[in-house]
Design a protein around this nucleic acid. Structure first.
Length: 543
RNA sequence: GGCCCCAUCGUCUAGGUAGGCCUAGGACACCGGGUUUUCAACCCGGCAACAGGGGUUCGAAUCCCCUUGGGGCUACCA
């Protein structure tokens, strides 16, 4: 049976790159009817955040990536938090020590830094090699009592080249002389990633490891360890990296970077208010602007909202908040560095599972193209079932805290129907907000008002439209349409000339769902009140 | 610096493992036109690539070498 896993370290939100890794592993497992495991690699006590694991799992669930073993559901190979597996690692480390395959070290970080500097000066790669005489038990006891920090390193066998058979890259050969005796146990007693990953993949019977290309250089180290421990060597696939269309690696640092530039570009900005909005001190804000510190994501998001800047989406949750469908994300991420071979690229998750084949993974890096993502989203909004779309829309409204969430399912479904062709859920929400405005508190877009109402005879036309509307008994779409079309014909103008003033009057904007639906949804009372209010407000202004 | 990976339209890619079917296909973006009550959506058309240089071969996008360019790693992070 094929067993894959996704092993995030809980340091923050799930990043799209991480989601892609999870997805490929999940697809490999689901395609073959195998097993997909979720494991939390929390061996770095300094960088872990308490809520991150939960957030990562929420994001995976949103994407529809479920796991057969792992946190929240358990399994026969638990626990699934590495911090709860310390005794297991210790057993294997002791074994390596007793067999002379690993050894204690007492180097200080200063000593190591110096050695690296020396290597650099000699234009050499820094390689840590075991000393001639290995420390004894009593050396260790003495070091501990002296308060020295003690680490354990694995002695990389130097006898033969290490050959990695990679599904994507083919055969890659490494010279062990280039490989350091890496640390397997840190001075705080926690294993390093390199050690924990090898032990857990063996114990959890993982057969296929699909991970980022950045791990390719680690693989010979892992294989040497597997050999020393008598473990199997799983199949490896080192995927290409996803790079950003804003330049450089697609990284979580992008959002703060964009925000910083945006703040600096706005000269008239109240820094104190901005800091308040982000829930940070003015001091922290200044430090941030100087590039000294980076506030946490909620603060970054809040400040971006405050100055009305749209930050590039990086984390899965960012895309969720921008109105993308999980189906879109799964489809798009799958097509980054993989394709089914034909000309089809819009695919459902089920279709993806059916034809997924890791042998078709691409070797070269790919750029994350947001324009293409939007077009995928447009396609998926068009093709998902009405029921699913409604669920996604409700989730979206909920996640962003929209006033539109006050609508019932029937209205929501209607809003989705009349917004056919929308590119994102965000777009739909923005076009429908007007329904929930107070009649005397419509948010007018000044450009729209100027162009449609104040120019030509916009207000006069609106007045006539208002009168005709009053005269209609029942504001059905059909009645509204007939009235507007007749009026346009009567006045010898296009429909736009009569419809646009009405549109701006009821939603403050030139962009809304089709006007007949918009009016009928608003209802006669609200519509007439808004028309009246608009006439009054802008008649006064123009004198 | 060292080690490793990669290289087809602006972007994602098909084709490369069995060299001729490739005057290199699709999608997104872009440009032009159409449709239209706004924004979208939709329809039609167009632009656009085998990084460079050497080989091998009757024949190379496809195989080999070099150059150049990009990326990764080089932590008591994962």
């Amino acid at each position: 049976m094929i067993v894959t896993r996704f092993a995030p370290s809980p340091t923050g939100y799930l990043h799209v790159g991480g989601a892609r890794t999870a997805l490929f592993n999940w697809l490999i497992a689901r395609h073959s009817g195998g097993k997909f495991i979720l494991r939390i690699e929390d061996t770095d006590t300094k960088r872990n955040t308490p809520t991150a694991a939960q957030q990562v799992m929420d994001d995976l669930r949103w994407l529809g990536i479920d796991w057969d073993e792992g946190p929240q559901i358990g399994g026969e190979n638990g626990p699934y938090y590495q911090s709860q597996r310390l005794e297991i690692y210790k057993t294997y480390i002791d074994k390596l020590i007793s067999e002379g395959k690993a050894y204690y070290c007492f180097d200080t970080s200063e000593q190591l830094a110096q050695a690296r500097k020396k290597a650099e000066a000699e234009k050499q790669n820094f390689v840590y090699r075991r000393p001639e005489v290995l420390p004894t038990e009593s050396d260790v006891k003495k070091a501990i009592s002296d308060g020295k920090s003690v680490t354990i390193r694995f002695a990389i066998p130097q006898d033969a080249p290490i050959i990695v058979e990679d599904i994507i890259r083919g055969t890659v050969t490494f010279d062990p002389a280039q490989l350091s005796d890496f640390i397997i146990c840190k001075s705080d007693g926690f294993p390093t990633y390199h050690f924990a990953v090898v032990v857990d993949d063996e114990l959890m019977a993982v057969t296929h490891v699909c991970r980022g290309q950045e791990h390719l250089m680690n693989t010979p180290c892992h294989q040497a360890l597997q050999k020393a421990l008598g473990f199997r060597i799983p199949a490896y696939a080192h995927m290409s990296v996803t790079v950003s269309d804003t330049g450089g690696k697609l990284s979580k640092r992008e959002r703060p970077k964009v925000l910083k530039t945006a703040i600096k570009a706005k000269n008239e900005i109240d820094l104190q208010k901005l800091a308040n909005a982000g829930g940070i001190s003015i001091d922290e804000l200044n430090q941030f602007l100087k590039g000294k510190i980076v506030p946490d994501m909620p603060a970054i998001d809040a400040m971006a909202d405050f100055i009305e800047v749209k930050l590039p989406e990086i984390n899965v949750v960012d895309f969720r908040k921008s109105g993308y469908l999980p189906e879109t994300m799964v489809n798009f991420l799958a097509m980054l560095g993989w394709n089914p071979g034909g000309e089809k690229e819009i695919m459902t998750t089920t279709e993806l599972i059916e034809c997924f084949d890791p042998n078709r993974l691409t070797k070269s890096n790919s750029l994350f193209d947001r324009k293409k993502l939007i077009s995928f989203n447009t396609e998926h909004i068009k093709t998902v079932s009405k029921e699913k779309l409604l669920i996604h829309f409700k989730d979206y409204l909920n996640v962003i805290g929209s006033a539109v969430s006050a609508a019932d399912d029937e209205l929501l479904s209607r809003l989705l129907r009349i917004n056919e062709g929308a590119r994102t859920l965000e777009q739909i929400e923005q076009k429908c907000r007007f329904i929930f405005f107070e009649n005397d508190n419509v948010e007018y877009d000044l450009k729209a008002v100027k162009k449609v109402l104040l120019k030509a005879d916009g207000l006069d036309m609106l007045e006539i439209v208002g009168q005709r509307l009053t005269a209609i008994e029942e504001l059905s779409e059909k009645n509204i349409e007939n009235m507007l079309r007749n009026l346009a014909e009567e006045k010898q103008v296009g429909l736009g000339k009569v419809a646009q003033p009405l549109r701006v009057a009821i939603c403050g904007n030139t962009v809304s769902p089709p006007i007949f639906d918009s009016v009928s949804i608003l209802g006669k009372d609200n519509t007439l009140k808004r028309v009246e209010f608009t006439l009054k407000k802008f008649r006064e202004q123009t004198g």
